[in-house]
């Protein structure tokens, strides 16, 4: 890369115009719409979706309070807090589970020959490039009331009525783990590949137990990979939409499907915008935290 930069001639910067269309598109369909979201969150909802151009902080107020039907007074209502809280908890649980499954997987992959490792990487990557909707649907058809597991259990006579797995927190967590596991494995693998095996030899020669080698040699050395993996899992899990929509079915909601609901049946665009602003703030917080960890590791 550095060598390419050296190629810079007297006309440096003239190439920038080539990047202009992509940048303009990113501004028009990225920055401007996001700015609209912030503005809409401060307006009044119109009755059939859309907004009235009357400024109001009601959307943010209704994140924490609702109007009492009779006295018109504002009463505390934890509905939003609970859904946001569930989103954060599910995203955290997903991150922990992804690490618990992803670390041994990545370590095993790192121990393979480069050729075998390439096939493993491919196998872990392919699901990412297939439709998340279809994969979530596949899970639904397995854990649903008429799905494979319940069908087999009932036919084998072990149970009489289907075990409710779909539309629970368990289903959503399973779906999140299923969607984002590759995002943990790949950054961990790239850190583990860089780990000097002589460090492990040295540890073993000095009679360190396996646990001590893992905790005192491996983990500190792959900290950038862990930070990247956790961020890559936590952020999309927190904002996940398809998984709670299909596997939560309105009973185990997360912030993502709550937001979409305000633009669908609920027709409260300012509230949905305010929820979006809060969600983006959470994402920004996650980025800031991970930056902090990375800087401390460096």
């Amino acid at each position: 890369m550095a060598a390419i930069v050296n190629h810079r001639t007297s006309t440096a910067g003239s190439g920038l115009s080539l990047a202009a269309p992509a940048i303009v598109l990113a501004v028009v369909l990225g920055c401007i719409p996001l700015a609209f979201v912030v503005v809409y969150s401060l307006l009044t909802p119109a009755s059939f979706g859309g907004v009235e151009w009357v400024a109001s902080a009601n959307a943010y107020r209704s994140l924490l309070f609702r109007k009492d039907l009779f006295s018109e007074e504002l009463v505390f209502s934890p509905d939003h807090l609970m859904i946001f809280g569930r989103s954060v908890l599910l995203a955290l649980a997903t991150t922990v589970l992804c690490f618990a499954v992803g670390f041994p997987t990545a370590a095993y992959m790192a121990s393979r020959s480069p050729r075998a490792r390439k096939w493993w990487v491919l196998a872990i990557t392919i699901p990412f490039w297939t439709s998340l909707l279809v994969r979530t649907l596949a899970l639904m058809l397995i854990i649903g009331d008429q799905g494979l597991i319940n069908g087999l259990l009932i036919r084998s006579g072990l149970i009489n009525a289907p075990v409710a797995m779909l539309y629970t927190d368990f289903a959503v967590l399973l779906g999140l783990l299923y969607s984002f596991l590759p995002f943990m494995v790949l950054p961990l693998l790239s850190s583990l590949e860089k780990l000097d095996p002589r460090l492990l030899e040295a540890g073993a020669d000095l009679y360190a137990s396996r646990w001590r080698i893992a905790l005192q040699i491996v983990l500190p050395n792959i900290r950038p990979g862990i930070a990247a993996g956790c961020l890559l899992v936590f952020v999309p899990a927190l904002g996940s939409y398809v998984v709670p929509l299909i596997l939560g079915g309105g009973r185990s909601m997360m912030a993502g499907d709550l937001i979409a609901l305000q633009f669908g049946t609920s027709r409260n665009w300012p509230l949905g915008s305010a929820e979006s602003v809060v969600l983006v703030l959470f994402v920004a917080l996650a980025f800031a935290l991970s930056n902090l960890v990375r800087r401390r590791a460096a």
């Binding site: 990225g30 719409p33 996001l34 952020v235 939409y241 937001i259 949905g272 979006s276 983006v280 994402v283």
Partner: peptide
């Protein structure tokens, strides 16, 4: 930006 912002937020922003 679309890689970082949750897809549902990007989607409602575009809808708006």
């Amino acid at each position: 930006l679309p890689l970082v912002v949750p897809e549902v937020v990007m989607a409602i922003a575009t809808l708006i």
